[in-house]
Amino acid sequence: MIFPGATVRVTNVDDTYYRFEGLVQRVSDGKAAVLFENGNWDKLVTFRLSELEAVK
């Protein structure tokens, strides 16, 4: 189960963010908004829950 605050990895091989890890900001309607941070940039991207896996 994916909840806000969880760290997730993108599993969709066709996505630009494949294998990126980010922090879930919100979850609704089968989608999750994931925040990616890297140095001087932040990006908030929405994914279907089926495209994400929780990082242990």
Rank of each mutant, 00 (worst) to 15 (best):
T7G: 03
T7N: 06
T16A: 14
V27P: 00
A32M: 02
V45Q: 05
A33M: 14
Q25M: 15
T16Q: 14
A54E: 10
K43P: 05
V55S: 05
L23F: 08
L52H: 00
A6R: 06
V45T: 04
N40L: 11
T11W: 05
T7C: 13
N12S: 08
S28M: 12
V13F: 07
T16C: 12
E37A: 14
P4W: 05
T11H: 04
I2Q: 01
L35F: 09
K31P: 00
V10D: 01
M1I: 09
A33E: 15
K31D: 06
S28F: 15
L23G: 02
N38I: 14
V8T: 01
E51G: 03
N38G: 11
V34N: 00
A32C: 07
N40G: 12
V34G: 00
A6N: 07
L35A: 06
L35Q: 06
M1V: 09
P4V: 13
F20P: 00
T11M: 09
D15L: 08
L49I: 10
V55R: 04
Y18A: 04
G39E: 09
S28C: 14
P4K: 08
K56T: 13
R19T: 09
V55Q: 04
W41A: 10
G5R: 03
L35K: 08
I2R: 02
E53D: 05
F47H: 02
V8A: 03
F36N: 00
S50G: 08
D14C: 13
A33L: 15
K43G: 08
D42T: 15
G39A: 10
K31Q: 10
E21P: 04
E53F: 06
D15K: 05
F36R: 00
S28A: 12
F47W: 02
D42M: 15
V24A: 03
V55C: 06
V10M: 02
Y17W: 13
V8C: 03
D15S: 15
D14L: 13
A32N: 01
S28R: 10
G30A: 05
V34T: 01
Q25T: 13
F36I: 08
E51F: 06
F3K: 10
E51D: 15
W41F: 11
D42G: 14
E53H: 05
A6V: 14
G39M: 10
V13Y: 07
N12G: 05
E21V: 15
Q25R: 08
P4M: 07
K43Y: 10
R26P: 01
Q25L: 15
R48M: 13
R48A: 13
A32H: 01
P4F: 06
V55Y: 06
G22H: 01
V13C: 08
